[in-house]
Design a protein around this nucleic acid. Structure first.
Length: 403
RNA sequence: GUGGGAUUAGCUCAGUUGGUUAGAGCACUGGUUUGUGGUGCCGGGGGUCACGGGUUCGAGCCCCGCAUCCCACCCCA
């Protein structure tokens, strides 16, 4: 038997119900916030991710499905969604058009990682990207949108918030952090020693307890923000307070993608094991410019659909559609004919085996149909059909023409 | 990529120190004295015990390899 590749799942039946329920719910909320759907390719030039996500990140450094295609192009399956949307935004010259552009997307992403629960090699994200709004209210709108989606799905969460500063305050903060870390160089783990060289901010995120002890005294970004970043960050907090969204400021929160600046946030669930980040996002004002577009402020987030799936509280399934059957073999043909006509507007399930009424009702029940419509010898004789509403238990025999 | 655990019916799982034809519940399917369901009763099908080797008179059980899933690290959604 040929099985699916490691970390790549089929989505069907019950899972598919949850999957589409999530996408429908999230899409509806995104539309209410003024976002429009965008679909971008699964395959992109590798350089796009190297430049946007950053070569020092693990995603680009070791997790991409990258290969040379038949035209000698260096390509890869997208490991995340933002880069492609930004690329499309620039390619369609929306940066030159000016104004505000808001997009949402959902689709498969690919990362070559060791699978775990909630961590797949092909996984699905739902995300939104907003271009052209520099107001911190838009940052708050992102967070409120995630919160709305999660609440609608009955999912509880913790929200962690940080500001990563901008090109004015981040570089000097980075320097003072590097100075600090270098002083305790001997005590830190190998990973942190590498991080100091490649991407020093990430040391803050180190899971190693002994490293964290050393970093307790390290300078904090939240205390080294420039005037504008600082006032934005406190404005954001007051907007969230005003909208009753609970959060905790975590000055060690670092996003794993290089393009973020200013607002960074992560939604955490405590109910799904170690892969606990269910949504993450933030502002990336420099990315459009960095990918050769006109300077455009931008902010967005992404949610991991598989991680959310098992947390979703689904609404009770409702009885729906018609079950149809014959009690005599002779009646089957007319049942099929009626069903064919009726299917133009309704879901119809036909049982091709004639059986007694009790068994038809049993079968209709099993299929969760709302109506059970049956033709037997009496009905054949009178050109009628017997229909029972399985919810309110009312029944009626009506002329076939009126069915 | 590193370390650990698991893998038996469609699903969730039992399976004694290695010893006859490998079990249960649920699901599926048929019947239930002949036209009223979901929740009664009786029956039935379904397993190369993940896969490949080895040890043994004999392996679901022991050993080696391998795949996948799960857990931790790592990373992130």
């Amino acid at each position: 038997m040929i099985a699916s590749l490691r970390g790549m799942n089929d989505i069907l039946s019950e899972d598919y119900e949850r999957f589409t329920y999530f996408i429908e719910t999230a899409s509806e909320i995104a539309k209410n916030y003024g976002f429009h759907f965008i679909e971008t390719p699964l395959l992109e030039e590798t350089a796009l991710f190297k430049r946007s996500v950053g070569e020092s990140s693990d995603i680009v450094g070791k997790e991409m499905y990258q290969f040379i295609d038949k035209g000698e192009n260096d390509v890869c399956l997208r490991p995340e969604g933002t880069a492609g949307v930004v690329r499309a935004f620039i390619q369609k010259k929306l940066d030159r058009a000016g104004g505000i552009h808001r997009f949402f997307y959902h689709g498969a992403m690919f990362r070559y990682e060791r699978p775990q629960k909630g961590r797949l090699r092909q996984f699905h994200q739902f995300g939104v990207e907003s271009f052209g709004v520099d107001s911190v209210y838009e940052d708050a709108a992102m967070i409120m949108m995630v919160s709305d989606i999660l609440s609608k799905l009955g999912i509880s969460y913790r929200l962690q918030l940080n500001s990563l500063g901008c090109s004015e305050c981040m570089p000097s903060y980075k320097e003072s952090l590097v100075d600090y870390v270098r002083k305790c160089q001997d005590g830190i783990c190998i990973d942190c020693q590498r991080r100091v060289e490649t991407n020093p901010i990430r040391v803050l995120d180190c899971k190693n307890g002994s490293c964290q002890e050393l970093y307790v005294e390290a300078p904090k970004i939240t205390q080294n923000l420039c005037a504008s970043c600082s006032s934005d960050f406190s404005a954001l907090q007051s907007i969230l307070d005003d909208n009753s969204i609970a959060y905790e400021v975590d000055s060690n929160l670092v996003r794993g993608l290089d393009y973020y600046s200013k607002t960074a946030f992560e939604f955490i669930s405590d109910e799904i094991g170690s892969q606990s980040a269910i949504a993450g996002g933030g502002r990336y004002d420099k990315l459009v410019e960095f990918l050769d577009g006109r300077p455009t402020p931008a902010v967005g987030f992404a949610m991991g659909i598989e991680r959310l799936m098992e947390l979703i509280k689904m609404p009770e399934p409702k009885k729906d559609g018609y079950y149809m059957g014959a009690m005599d073999d002779e009646a089957l043909q007319s049942v099929v004919k009626i069903a064919h006509k009726k299917r133009k507007n309704h879901t119809i399930l036909v049982d091709y085996k004639s059986k007694n009424l009790k068994n038809h009702l049993k079968a209709a029940d099993k299929l969760n149909a709302k109506y059970c419509a049956v033709i037997g010898s009496d009905e054949m004789k009178n050109k009628t059909i017997w229909v029972k509403n399985l919810e309110d238990k009312t029944e009626d025999t009506m002329p076939i023409a009126e069915f």
